[in-house]
Simulated assay, not measured.
Amino acid sequence: MTAAPPETLTLERMPTPIGEALVVTDETGALRAFNWTDYEARMRAWIARHYPKAPLVEGAIPAAVRAALSAYFGGEARALDGLAWRASGTAFQLKVWETLCTIPAGETLSYAGLAERIGRPSAVRAVGLANGANPISLVVPCHRVIGANGSLTGYGGGLPRKRWLLGHEGASFKEQLAA
């Protein structure tokens, strides 16, 4: 879902049950970034690197995007399906991100399973790196990727958020026991 660089980016801060979210849309209403306030510096650096000519202004995102996010956090796990997004990335990253969107709410997939879905079964590490570079977390559901043994693995928003998101969606996963 690539497109021309945005002319302007709008940032709205939204309270959620797991912290304040940062939601960034372009002038067409497409999502360009989603993150959490405790990772704001990282998100702003990514935006500056990928969209250097687009000013980031605080304001209101489109009502439809806000409504979908509110519905999701209100219990409608599939409310984010179909939200428009655009991201700057390599062809490989974009393929991984587009494929993440095929994992339905309530389901999970391993990194190896994701690599197989994109037709690159030996690219498990590269898939992991692309998954971790996803700028539109939640909507491009990188949190639905778990370890081959069903355990939680890294998430850019932190494992407590990943645990909450998967539980909210009704997905199964294994808790790792402390050693």
Rank of each mutant, 00 (worst) to 15 (best):
Y39R: 12
M43Y: 03
I18M: 04
G29S: 08
A48N: 11
Y51R: 04
A21I: 07
A54L: 08
I47Y: 02
T37L: 10
I47L: 15
P52S: 07
V24I: 12
A41I: 04
M14E: 02
D26Y: 00
A33M: 12
A48D: 12
N35L: 02
A30Q: 13
Y51D: 08
A41L: 11
K53T: 11
N35T: 13
T37Q: 07
M14N: 01
L22G: 03
R42H: 10
A33I: 04
M43S: 11
G29T: 08
R42D: 14
R32T: 03
P55R: 11
Y51W: 09
P55T: 07
A48C: 10
V23Y: 05
E40F: 01
A33D: 11
M14T: 00
T37Y: 05
K53G: 07
K53M: 09
W36T: 06
D38L: 11
A33R: 02
A45I: 13
M43D: 10
L56F: 04
M14R: 06
W46A: 07
T28R: 12
P15D: 13
R32P: 01
A54P: 06
R49H: 13
G19V: 02
V24C: 02
A41S: 09
T28G: 05
A45V: 14
P17V: 10
Y51E: 09
F34V: 15
R44A: 14
G29P: 04
G29Y: 04
M14A: 02
P15A: 15
E40Y: 01
H50G: 09
T16I: 13
Y51G: 04
H50P: 06
D26E: 05
I18V: 14
A21H: 14
P55I: 04
M43N: 03
A48Q: 13
K53I: 02
F34R: 08
V23C: 06
R44Q: 14
P15C: 05
L31P: 11
R44I: 10
W36M: 07
A30S: 15
I47V: 14
D26F: 01
R32K: 10
I18D: 03
T16S: 15
R49Y: 09
A30E: 15
